[in-house]
Amino acid sequence: MKKKSFIKDIMKNPVSYLMLLPAAVYSLAFGYCTIPYMAIAFQKYSYRGGLLGSEWVGLRNFEFFFKSNDVLRIILNTIKLNLLFITFTTLSAVTLAILVNEVGKRRFKKIAQSCYLLPYFLSWAIVSYILNAIIGSRYGIANSFLQFLGLERINFYVQPKYWTAILVILKVWKDLGMQMVIYLAAITGFDEEVYEAAAIDGAGRFQMCRYITLPMLMPTVVMLTIMAVGKVFYGDFGMIYAIVGDNGVLYDATDVIDTYVFRTMRTIGSPSQAMAISLFQACMGFVCVWGTNYLAKKKFSEGALF
């Protein structure tokens, strides 16, 4: 079939195009129309003057960022936290998926799965309450427990050294179920015959797991990991801000690029400086996504995003 012109296609399917309209308008407004505004990184943007009426200042906003003492800290924090999140969530999710797969009883399996998945649907705001109930300085049960053991109580909220671990545990707690469901679905899809053949050859459950399940699961693991690594420059703002908030004492361990951009914009009130950092992040992010996608394409042709 020859391709019609776009206008003709619209004339032929008016109702279909009409139904596309709301989604298209939204994507245009909040997707494409935001892109020109990235230029304010090179301006001293004022909300009144708008994009065209603001003064251009060249690279001064970038200078502000790269000369500040925070730059190295927040970049390293972002990458470090993300890599830890990826490592620990993947490891525990894969292990758990394999274990749950070994469980024979369907009901048990289902209930367990539901339990794991529940935290994924809670907001970080709620998680911050839960965390406070556990490690809160006055009434938290962790502190009650420490006292019970005859140890000193710890005021976690003023000691950054604990926070990398706390954030990793929270992330694993929240995302474990989601990832586990994906891996479990992959395992359930494996060909049953392979296992039967192995059983005839006298392989035990552990051997099957080591030599069949794990190797067959690897492509999925690698694919999801590659995709996650592509986003390594993007901190989880919702998580960090809901849990740490404006508690400056903890910034050494918890401050990431996204929270820093937010503060620059809201507290310091400088959208242009915030945009400069954000633009730097977008560029690094772009390189990462492109790189990991290239890797994915090379390794498995269906694994690539685009």
Binding site: A24, G31, T34, I35, P36, Y37, M265, M275, S278, F306
Partner: peptide
């Protein structure tokens, strides 16, 4: 043009201005 339009939506998933332009919008 459905594939081109799908691409139009997909691009916004991977690439957009971020927090600041979003707020200005």
């Amino acid at each position: 043009y459905r594939n081109a339009i799908s691409m139009f939506f997909f691009v916004t998933m991977v690439f957009n201005g971020g927090m600041v332009p979003w707020y200005i919008m």
